[in-house]
Write a protein that binds this DNA or RNA. Structure first.
Lengths: 149, 149
DNA sequence: CTATTTTAGTACGTATTAGTACTAATGTCA
DNA sequence: TGACATTAGTACTAATACGTACTAAAATAG
């Protein structure tokens, strides 16, 4: 017997406990993640792009967007700022003049090789507090949540 | 025998599977949530504030920030725009002249009473696809994740 | 082969976000 | 009570974020 949702009982729906847990877990992680990047003079999206470009010969805007989940409109500005910092460079693609290849510069490669492992280790200190079993189970439930959207 | 993290093996750390699952689950939820609010002419933060103010006599900026996890600097702008839409109003507090009370206007109350239950039902259609048992277990693991930060 | 559609990236407007600095008001402590 | 710290909110900057519109280039349908 499901009751109709009204403005009085809406906030008592059981699933909202899960919603709040999801939002708070993500936000706390995101804040910790951003703090690690900021120590390297990078924002989270900038670091995400550097990490996507690392160990590649360059990626197009579309490919970077798919890896980082940054939409193309936002990506233009992020790449602009990384280019101003001399960490990446736009390279025209002669085969398909619509596409622009984005590559790490020598400086960008250095920053990647130093900051990337350090940041992964920085995250690992926290996730190591969860057992591998818990990590696997948490991952499974997060996949289930994602699957309903 | 833990291996040192380098820029070559860093991306192969097991816990990154969990990180990606968390980010993707949250982002898909957030996009679905935002779409529901946009149908009512609201942004997510604006709707969060309206929902926080619903069924109250008004809240201070600090209280709204605690409920919605919006920092005070951002909140000023969000409240400004809600005030421009005539959905909330700032009311000076005579007891403590530092505080401003934010209340729903009559229009804001109407929007809350219509949009809030509709939005909760809109979210419920998705979360109903998970069993109650899965919802409880997912919540437990999300609390564990939050606890390490 | 040409008209149409799709794809890639940019430009722009509005809104959010975090952080810092600032003012006014309140609380605290010696 | 008076110096000092704390609290509440605003102002400001830089960077995202998303949607829409736009241009150029490539792919495709007929």
């Amino acid at each position: 017997m499901s009751t109709k949702i009204t403005f009085k009982n809406a906030s008592k729906q059981d699933f909202l406990v899960l919603v709040r847990a999801l939002v708070r877990a993500y936000q706390d992680f995101a804040a910790y993640d951003a703090a690690g990047h900021r120590a390297a003079g990078l924002t989270s999206p900038q670091a995400d792009v550097l990490f996507a470009l690392g160990n590649t010969e360059g990626l197009t805007f579309r490919e970077i967007g798919e890896k980082t989940l940054i939409t193309k409109g936002t990506l233009t500005g992020v790449i602009d700022r990384l280019e101003n910092k001399r960490l990446v460079q736009r390279v025209p693609n002669p085969n398909d003049k619509r596409c622009t290849l984005v590559q790490l510069t020598r400086t960008g490669t250095q920053v990647f090789q130093e900051h990337f492992p350090r940041h992964i280790a920085y995250l690992k200190t926290r996730f190591d507090q969860l057992t591998h079993s818990d990590q696997r189970r948490a991952t499974r439930f997060l996949h289930k949540i994602k699957a309903v959207f």
